[in-house]
Design a protein around this nucleic acid. Structure first.
Lengths: 215, 215
DNA sequence: CGTAATATTGAGTCAAATCAAAATTGGTGG
DNA sequence: CCACCAATTTTGATTTGACTCAATATTACG
């Protein structure tokens, strides 16, 4: 099912057992290109954008995939990818389907149902006020801080894609997204995290009070 | 698989053979409600909107389904619909999957691939200028005139949903959609069709020169 | 024919786009 | 570690396209 040749070029690959692979991609790295051969992957962590080719030949945002989503399932049917996939943030992928040669109907159904929900969410990201759209995108990308299991209060963190990518997802312009992120920062919703020992970045944030409507 | 009790209330139902049904719905009719039990359907003709419930309890546009698309596939997994479906125009549905008790992987994969493409198209409908968005929606809903098979020149026709529904799909306001449709009419792209012998309607149009960019 | 629902059109306003700097960040190499 | 450069982000000023509000017109339907 999954030959070593079908494993894309990436930051790091690890063959777990038999046909099961774990791949790591850096932010901005191309995962696969439209119309090329390859396999399907499930996103273990991080976020991925899918792009389609417009009638006019331009690449344009087509969908967002996050932890748990499957990308490239259409390769099981066509052998080729329908979309180009790019890492929005550092991410880890695992080969899909796991185990059996062909996916069981149940696993496929689960993937279909998840894809439809994700599509509805992304469609919803593109209506309403700019501030709300950006806030909803941030919440969608948020994940529990994986650090201290002793700390009972589950803190949410988020690694944001570039402002341009966020703009493509929300159908806003990058300047507008930048203003809205600043607004969330000043409102105390987003609290910049220092990356290592270094100064704070514009990408890593802790989420303070998630339910705050912007006004 | 498909009991008569799972067939929703509709304008007209016809049992073709065994478990295979054909249903007709009028414009605006509810096809199924979120969280109710039922089966999956393939759209034979017409168009359907799917709505999800927002965190705040509001219904909001979640996806568009047109000829060939399958709705309610998630019932094979959960037994219940994830979305509410409403007819945007008069439409005909057939039971899905046809024949076998459970869908073959191939049919399911095909449905998944189609769903992903449709989602990408709907997402794309929500960016760019208002005029372009409405034009793209119109082209998406267009179908070849089923009338004279002798006529070699394939004329395109379209039955438009209400202005409000078009607004929900494109993330515009109904007044804006109305202006853009008028614009297309004046530009000669949309040519009103007389419904029966009556006066022309605002819903049925012939499409004249599809490739005209608005300017 | 009359009424309710939809659609169209107009005028004024505003949120986001655009255009244009300036500031910050992330690398690279001395 | 620090200086330097390219890429990215932030901020400001102005413009504009879509929204809002309001009135009118048209269509659907009993």
């Amino acid at each position: 099912m999954l030959d070593a040749q079908k494993v894309p070029r990436c930051a790091a690959a690890r063959q777990i057992q038999g046909k099961h692979w774990l791949l790591r991609f850096d932010r901005g790295q191309r995962i696969h290109a439209r119309d090329t051969k390859g396999a399907a992957w499930r996103i273990v962590s991080g976020s991925v954008r899918l792009d389609r080719e417009e009638p006019n030949g331009e690449q344009s945002f087509a969908n967002l995939a996050i932890r748990g989503d499957v990308i490239g399932a259409e390769t099981l049917l066509f052998g080729k990818y329908s979309f180009t996939a790019t890492a929005l943030t550092a991410c880890v992928l695992e080969s899909w389907p796991e185990g059996r040669a062909s996916p069981v109907g149940d696993s496929l159904l689960r993937t279909l149902a998840k894809a439809e929900r994700r599509a509805a969410e992304v469609i919803a990201l593109r209506c309403g006020q700019a501030a709300d759209r950006v806030r909803r995108l941030v919440m969608m990308l948020a994940h529990p801080a994986a650090e201290h299991p002793t700390n009972t209060a589950v803190e949410l963190q988020v690694v944001l894609p570039s402002r341009q990518d966020m703009a493509d997802i929300t159908a806003l312009k990058l300047e507008t997204v930048s203003r809205m992120v600043s607004q969330l920062r000043h409102a105390g919703v987003l609290d910049p995290l220092r990356h290592d020992g270094k100064r704070p970045s514009q990408r890593n944030f802790a989420i303070r009070h998630a339910l705050g409507e912007t006004h």
